[in-house]
Design a protein around this nucleic acid. Structure first.
Length: 335
DNA sequence: AACTGGCGCAACCGCCCACCA
DNA sequence: ATGGTGGGCGGTTGCGCCAGT
């Protein structure tokens, strides 16, 4: 019996998300929290597959996402982690806060794999050592199961240890622990990153959309107030659970921006406090830097990995050169 | 200025797993 | 024990952008 599609494909919109859709989704999630993705399209009116909504949220709209160029340090981490874990991007991402697995995967596929390939071409003879790197996909896939098995054993063991010593260990104090997705991301960058993304999208959209000049004032006011009020869309009297997001019509954006408003985190009423998760005062919803909850579970307490990360935490970034000597062979020559 | 090929990235697809009734 | 469902993950694709010609 084949599994039915996650959603009715008929009438489901595909392709790039519009700013309007983004805002609807963000508003909804801010109100209800992430999860129950199945209900998102029906509750928001989005003509999107539930999966698509989840993906859009986790890969793009989620708070705390850092976009743009990878730093050299991040790059090195990815290389090492990939060598150790294989293509377990979610696990790798758990060690790189603010980066999504999709981002890392893309970066690997577009930049790092190419670099390593090039390197391999330059140094054919040294590929033996490079067996831990991506250049040896066959070896990697071969050893991946063993690695994974080992990983799972460690995970189970660590989970047990953690369960037994609950509050004793503060993960934030442990430099070798992958950073939980829920961990506070300090400063104004928490929501700003995603808000900026939306802002950028909106502004691009504004540039491109001829419709935007036909906007009605009333709609813009509605939109702005909607954006400022997380309870928008559900109506003043309706309960959030049954609320249908009816916010952010495209007509609203033009005058919204023309009034000099910036699409800032404040618009979402998300406070930028160090002690994230934020509490939305309007509805009390804990707008956490959710995300990748499974990633924390999938943390990989490999001894070697932890050792390296520990050293890395101590030495980096000032002594990144020392990183080279960690014994992963080819990746050391990589730079 | 027009064309083209490569690149980067967002998004989709399909498989898998965990959970629940 | 079994089947259904939701969600997660990794691989892949498609499209827009940009540099080179």
């Amino acid at each position: 019996m084949g599994r039915p599609p996650c959603c009715d494909k008929i009438g489901v919109k595909k392709g790039p998300w519009t700013p309007e859709e983004d805002i609807i989704l963000v508003s909804y999630i801010q109100q209800h929290g992430p999860g129950n993705w199945r209900a998102v399209p029906s509750n928001t009116g989005l003509l999107r597959c539930s999966k698509s909504c989840r993906l859009r949220w986790t890969n793009y709209l989620r708070p705390g996402i850092k976009r743009g160029n990878f730093t050299e340090h991040e790059e090195k981490m990815i290389i090492h982690l990939q060598a150790l874990l294989g293509n377990r991007w979610a696990a790798i991402a758990s060690y790189l806060p603010q980066r999504t697995d999709n981002d890392i995967k893309n970066y690997w596929n577009t930049h790092l794999r190419k670099k390593l390939k090039k390197l391999q071409g330059n140094d054919e003879n040294s590929t033996q050592e490079g067996a831990t790197s991506s250049s040896s996909q066959s070896n990697l896939s071969k050893g991946q199961w063993e690695r994974r098995l080992q990983t799972d054993i460690h995970m189970a063991r660590k989970a047990l240890c953690e369960a037994l010593s609950l509050d004793k260990s503060d993960s934030s104090a442990n430099p070798i622990s992958p950073i939980p997705a829920q961990q506070p991301v300090t400063g104004s960058s928490t929501y700003a990153s995603s808000a900026e993304n939306i802002s950028r999208l909106l502004q691009n959209w504004m540039k491109d959309s001829p419709k935007s000049s036909e906007l009605s004032r009333s709609n813009s006011e509605t939109t702005q107030s909607s954006l400022n009020n997380p309870s928008i869309g559900s109506g003043s009297g309706s309960s959030p659970s049954e609320g249908t997001i009816s916010v952010a019509t495209p007509e609203g954006f033009d005058s919204f921006f023309s009034e000099g408003n910036a699409f800032t985190p404040e618009i979402f009423q998300v406070e930028s406090k160090p002690n994230f998760p934020n509490v939305n005062s309007e509805n009390g919803f804990l707008f956490q830097a959710e995300s990748k909850p499974s990633l924390e579970e999938s943390r990989v307490p490999l001894t070697l990995l932890e050792k390296w990360l520990f050293d890395e935490a101590i030495n980096a970034p000032a002594q990144e050169e020392e990183f080279m000597g960690m014994g992963l062979g080819e990746s050391a020559e990589f730079f």
